[in-house]
Design a protein around this nucleic acid. Structure first.
Length: 341
DNA sequence: CAGCCTTA
DNA sequence: TAAGGCTGG
């Protein structure tokens, strides 16, 4: 989560439209988590159905995928499998953050501070049992394929960009770069303003693309070296990174000494982490091979039944959203007919 | 987050 | 009609 390569990578602004007809491997956990965190009311409560079950992830997946398909983008979602054992500490750290946030949330609610309540509620976000299955169900109604990765979803998503089965991977996390993704798309959404918590300001969010080779060329380093830089800054497998080393210092050290083992001032701390194993997670990731990625047809009726009858979505809204999709897809097939006639 | 309604 | 605010479930 917190791998701050933002300042080092070459990021280029782009648009959703530019990915029309391209297969994009989406880090499913990353996307769903973001929906769960942000699709909330002013008090921080998530959307839920008549039985009190959370529906924020379903709402997010519905509208975003309607946009993808309407633009002719071919998303494939990659779900996480078993995390590497080295991630245990990071998983515990995140649990603790959620615990702390829960207390802060309750305090903010008691004090009637909605802005804070919402912010802390977002920090308590967690993936509950059943959400993955429900998300896959929505994707199935769309005819959108998904893959169950053996280990980290990002790793398999990155792999697909190298087999040529996907044009790019999409995630907010820079780990994809370390995993060897050819291209990474961040903010893979409609562009728009996003509010900064507790401030009356907005930032414009636009999709951006990072071409890994371009970044390596501009930094004049290798893939192995950017992994070492990641380890210096801190990855999920050594969350704290190294003392007083940020992106700039990390780059400088690697350019001067080439690799972790040869940086004199870090040797003592280097012995406290399993850096060779961490390198291996990124350089030889456990990935899942896929024969063929098959896109199906949209099951409008199934989708409507599920969302309206079982998950309390408004029939009018679903109808008009799906009509929008149907029209966009019809237009595309018309264009295709013209091409072949 | 994303759609839709209000506003000027 | 473009930006800002409100609401969805």
């Amino acid at each position: 989560m917190g791998l701050n390569l933002k300042e080092l990578v070459v990021r280029e602004k782009t648009t959703l439209e530019s990915f029309s007809s391209k297969v994009i491997a989406i880090d499913a956990y990353n996307a769903i988590y973001q929906f769960l965190a942000s699709i909330r009311g002013p008090d921080g409560l998530q959307l839920s159905d008549s039985e009190g079950r959370i529906t924020s992830h379903l709402s997010g997946l519905l509208y975003r995928n309607i946009n993808f398909l309407s633009l002719g983008i071919k998303p494939v979602y990659v779900f996480d499998g078993k995390p590497p054992s080295l991630k245990t500490a990071e998983i515990e750290r995140r649990k603790q953050i959620k615990k702390d946030a829960t207390i802060k949330y309750e305090k903010a609610i008691a004090e009637g501070n909605l802005e804070d309540a919402r912010k802390f509620a977002q920090q308590t976000t967690s993936m509950k049992d059943g959400m993955v299955k429900e998300s896959k169900q929505i994707l199935s109604y769309f005819g959108i394929p998904y893959i169950d990765a053996a280990s980290e979803g990002e790793a398999t998503a990155a792999h697909l960009t190298n087999t040529g089965q996907a044009y790019a991977s999409a995630s907010q996390d820079f780990d994809s770069i370390l995993c060897g993704a050819k291209r990474l798309i961040r903010n893979f959404t409609n562009s728009g303003r996003r509010k900064i918590p507790n401030r009356n300001t907005y930032v414009e969010i636009e999709p951006e693309i990072i071409e890994t080779q371009k970044t390596l060329d501009s930094l004049e380093i290798t893939r192995e070296q950017i992994v070492d830089i990641g380890i210096l800054i801190g990855t999920d497998f050594n969350p704290n990174g190294f003392d007083r080393i940020g992106p700039k210092t990390a780059l400088k050290m690697i350019k001067q000494y080439s690799r972790l083992e040869d940086i004199p001032q870090i040797q003592e701390q280097l012995q406290t982490i399993e850096y060779e194993k961490i390198r291996k997670i990124f350089l030889e990731p456990i990935v899942t091979d896929v024969d063929e990625i098959v896109f199906g047809k949209v099951d409008y009726e199934g989708m409507t039944n599920y969302l309206v009858k079982e998950r309390s979505f408004s029939e009018d809204r679903i109808q008009s959203s799906l009509n929008r999709l149907r029209k966009a897809l019809e237009k595309k097939s018309h264009n295709l007919d013209q091409w072949f006639s």
